[in-house]
Amino acid sequence: MPDPPSPALLSAAGVVKRFGHVQALRGAAFDAYAGEVVALIGDNGAGKSTLVKVLSGALRPDAGSMTLGGEPLDLRDPLDAQRLGIETVYQDLALAYDLDAAANLHLGRETLRRPPLGWLGMLDKDAMRAGAVEAFRSLRITLPDVTVPVRSLSGGQRQCVAVARAVAWATRVVFMDEPTAALGVVQRRQVLDVIRRVRDRGVAVVLISHNLPEVLAVADRVEVLRLGRRVARYASADASVKDLVRAMTGAVTTEDPP
């Protein structure tokens, strides 16, 4: 496994998380570098979701240390993470389906008119619409209309809206949980293209996926979790689906011995 040249943008070590008697993470480590797509894979119950929740501020770890850009990282909630430029695309997308794409992109971070109307909370809808159009264009996402409710968009388009929202605000790290799970072939390719474009902006993209061929196709690196611990790291170019399966099932362990 080649050593990446620069220090990791987001790094975690020795992360422990218990739920009652169940130990979901037992000293897990994880690294993500700026401008790469890193896939986080593992069998069901390996601790992927728990680790992502810890790294995105949704859960507080029982032990372990995290750094972002070399600085110690202590996240109290997901909003903390968002303030630091860490965004998450949830599997359920978390969109307000009755609002349009532009409104969803700015939800919770609305642009207000200049004072005095801004003091009354009046929205600057034109600026937000323009911002949304620009955000979609820069990712080459084509929507029929940014002003129709998200509900009337296709599954792939909704996924793109969720991704675009995360990416619009993520300056450093984006977590994407199974972003292509429910999509058809064409839509899947569209989302994967978007993921590559996000990486090209210098953001670290963390992809959680069960689809190993897809992981090898889109990710630059792969980190494998097993039983709450990192067991292997691969550069995608040097790994096969077989390697990944062997690491996931415990046939090989290349690092972090218990």
Binding site: A96, A103, R109
Partner: peptide
């Protein structure tokens, strides 16, 4: 129709969990 308060009213009714996650 035109303010953040109204926008959040729609968002809360449309998907409360999504609203919560963006900090509303």
């Amino acid at each position: 129709a035109a303010t953040r308060f109204g926008r959040h009213t729609y968002a809360v009714g449309s998907n409360p969990e999504a609203a919560r996650r963006v900090g509303i």
